[in-house]
Design a protein around this nucleic acid. Structure first.
Length: 463
RNA sequence: UCCUCAGUAGCUCAAUGGUAGAGCAUUCGGCUGUUAACCGAAGGGUUGUAGGUUCGAGUCCUACCUGAGGAGCCA
C-alpha cells in the first residue's frame, strides 16, 4: 500500500515538474507515520507528510517545522549532511508549502514537542509561490481578515485545538447517549411549519411553490419517536433566522436533543448533569494538549462535578435584584443576568420553573402552580450563558389543545403532534444542548464563531 | 431595526490641517541550535467610495459602503 502511494507520487512528480522531486535516494526505506505517534518511533527512520508550519534558518542549518494535522514536528536540515540542491530548496521553502520529509527521528529536549527529525531526504509536493505567499503569518491579525480566510485559518494551532475539542465533545455526547439506552433517531431538516410559531425561520422553496422551513428544533418529532423507542436523541444542524449579532449566536448551529418517555423535569436535570460531567471528563482526559494550546484554566473544568446547584426562577429573580439587575418577575433573563447569576457558582447552575407566559406552548405547567412551567435552563459558569434548555412536555390532550389556541397556532399543522396525546400519552421530557456553546465554554474562548469550522452568522456566509 | 467604534502597504498599526511611516510578511545578503530566531538591504500606497470646506485633507463636514462590539430579538 505504502509503495503504491509512493509510486504514484513519483510518477506525478515527473509529470508536473522536473524540480518537483528533490530526493537523492531511490529506495523507500522510511516508514510513514503521523507526528502524533512520534513517541513510538524514537531512533527509527520515518517519513512524515505535511505542510511547512514555520521555518527558522541560519547559514548552514535550518529548522523546518512541519505539521501533518496530528501535530507539529521540528526537523533539522544540516548543509554538510545533505546534497546542495536539497538543502537550498528546504532553506527557501515558503510557509504552508506541502512536503514529505524523510529522516531519523530522535528525542530532543531542545525541540518543541520533545522530538526532532534529522532530515535525510525530502519531496516538495507543492511549493507556495512568493507572488502569493500564505496570507496568515505568525503575527497578529484582525478578526475580519481571519474570518475572510477561515478556510486557511483552520490550519493554525488554536483553531485546530478548538475543532479537536469539538470533535471530542461530539464523540462524548454520542457515547453517553449510546451507552445509556438512547436510540439515535434523526429528525427532518425540512419542516412544514414553525415548531413554536414564534421565532423566525428560514424559508425554502420546495418544488411547485410549496414553502417549507429549515428546522429550528427536532423536539416535536422527538416526541413522536420517543413513544416508539422510549429514549431517543437527535443530533443535527439547527437554523435560526434571528437577527442576533452577538458572540453567543449563530444562524446555523448543531444541537443534541434527547427525549425520554415516562420522564419528568427531575429526570431531565439528572441526565443533563450526568451528560455534562461525562463530556467534561472526556475532554479533560483526552484533550490536555489542546486545552494547553488554548491556555485553558484546567481547575475551572475540574470543578465541574455533581451535584450542580438547582435554583428556581423565583430565587434567581430575587438574587439578581439583590445584585442590582432591573429584572422583574415575569421577564426573561438577559445575557447580563445570566452572567451575573452564574458568577456565584463554580459549576453549571440549573434554573427551573420559569413563568409559563414566557415559555413555549408545549411546557407542562407545575401541578401546584400553573403560572410556572416545568422547564429548566442550565447556565454554564464563567459567563458562558445558557448551554441547555429543556423540560417536561404537556401530555394531556385537552391542555395541549387549549395551549395551541392560546398561542394562536394553526391546529392543522399540529394534527400529528396532537395525535400523540390520543394514543398512550405519558409524561415525557427532554432537553436541547447547543454544541458550539458547550465547546466555546470548554475551550474558554470568547466567541461562538470559532467553535464551528465554517460559522454562519448574520451578514457572514463566506467562505 | 437602533447605539458605539473602526476602515492607511499582503497583515497589525502610526502620522498637531503642511514631504504618507514602522514592525511582520516577500526578495537578496550574513549567521551550525533556532524557539513568533536575529542582523543588514530592497521592492511594496487610488489612505473604503462619492461629494464638500480649505492655499493645502489620511486628518474637518455630509452621504453611502464594509466590518467589529453591544442592545433589541432569541427552547
Amino acid at each position: 500500500m505504502r509503495c503504491r502511494i509512493w509510486n504514484r507520487h513519483w510518477q506525478w512528480s515527473r509529470k508536473c515538474s522536473k524540480n518537483w522531486r528533490i530526493s537523492h535516494l531511490s529506495e523507500p526505506v522510511y516508514q510513514r507515520i503521523r507526528i502524533a505517534e512520534a513517541g513510538s518511533y524514537d531512533g527509527r527512520q520515518v517519513e512524515i507528510a505535511g505542510w511547512l508550519y514555520n521555518l527558522r534558518k541560519s547559514g548552514k542549518i535550518c529548522f523546518p517545522q512541519v505539521r501533518d494535522g496530528s501535530g507539529i514536528l521540528q526537523c533539522v536540515a544540516v548543509k554538510s549532511a545533505l546534497p546542495e540542491e536539497l538543502f537550498e530548496s528546504l532553506k527557501h521553502l515558503t510557509q504552508e508549502s506541502s512536503l514529505i520529509i524523510r529522516g531519523k527521528l530522535r528525542a530532543e529536549p531542545r525541540a518543541p514537542g520533545g522530538f526532532e527529525l534529522d532530515v535525510e531526504d525530502a519531496t516538495v509536493v507543492q511549493r507556495v509561490s512568493e507572488e502569493h505567499p500564505y496570507p496568515i503569518t505568525p503575527k497578529d491579525h484582525g478578526i475580519e481578515f481571519l474570518m475572510d480566510h477561515r478556510h486557511l485559518w483552520l490550519r493554525s494551532r488554536r483553531q485546530h485545538a478548538v475543532l479537536s475539542i469539538r470533535h471530542e465533545v461530539i464523540r462524548a455526547v454520542r457515547d453517553y447517549f449510546d451507552t445509556h439506552g438512547f436510540t439515535l433517531v434523526d429528525t427532518p431538516i425540512f419542516t412544514p411549519a414553525a415548531c413554536e410559531g414564534t421565532t423566525t425561520l428560514f424559508g425554502v422553496n420546495y418544488f411547485d411553490d410549496e414553502k417549507v422551513f429549515l428546522t429550528q428544533s427536532g423536539q416535536l418529532y422527538n416526541e413522536a419517536t420517543v413513544m416508539a423507542f422510549g429514549k431517543v436523541y437527535t443530533f443535527g444542524p439547527t437554523f435560526r433566522a434571528e437577527k442576533s449579532k452577538t458572540r453567543r449566536h449563530l444562524t446555523e448551529f448543531w444541537m443534541v436533543e434527547p427525549e425520554m418517555a415516562y420522564a419528568t423535569l427531575d429526570d431531565v436535570k439528572r441526565v443533563a448533569e450526568e451528560m455534562i460531567c461525562f463530556c467534561v471528563d472526556r475532554v479533560l482526559a483526552n484533550r490536555r494538549e489542546e486545552l494547553s494550546v488554548l491556555e485553558r484554566d484546567l481547575t475551572k473544568l475540574q470543578a465541574i462535578q455533581p451535584p450542580f446547584p438547582r435554583i428556581s426562577y423565583d430565587e434567581a429573580v430575587l438574587a439578581l435584584q439583590k445584585k442590582g439587575s432591573e429584572i422583574q418577575w415575569g421577564g426573561d433573563l438577559g445575557g447580563a443576568d445570566e452572567t451575573l447569576l452564574s458568577e456565584d457558582y463554580d459549576r453549571p447552575v440549573m434554573v427551573d420553573r420559569y413563568p409559563t407566559a414566557i415559555k413555549a406552548f408545549y411546557f407542562e405547567p407545575a401541578p401546584d402552580r400553573p403560572e410556572v412551567a416545568l422547564g429548566v435552563d442550565i447556565l454554564a459558569p464563567e459567563g458562558y450563558g445558557e448551554i441547555i434548555g429543556g423540560g417536561q412536555r404537556i401530555h394531556d390532550l385537552d391542555l395541549l389543545l387549549q395551549r395551541l389556541e392560546e398561542h394562536h397556532l394553526p391546529r392543522e399543522a399540529f394534527d400529528w403532534y396532537v395525535d400523540l396525546r390520543r394514543f398512550g400519552s405519558v409524561p415525557h421530557a427532554g432537553f436541547g444542548m447547543g454544541i458550539e456553546r458547550f465547546v466555546t465554554w470548554m475551550c474558554g474562548i470568547d466567541h461562538l464563531r470559532e467553535a464551528i469550522a465554517f460559522p454562519r452568522m448574520l451578514y457572514r456566509t463566506r467562505p
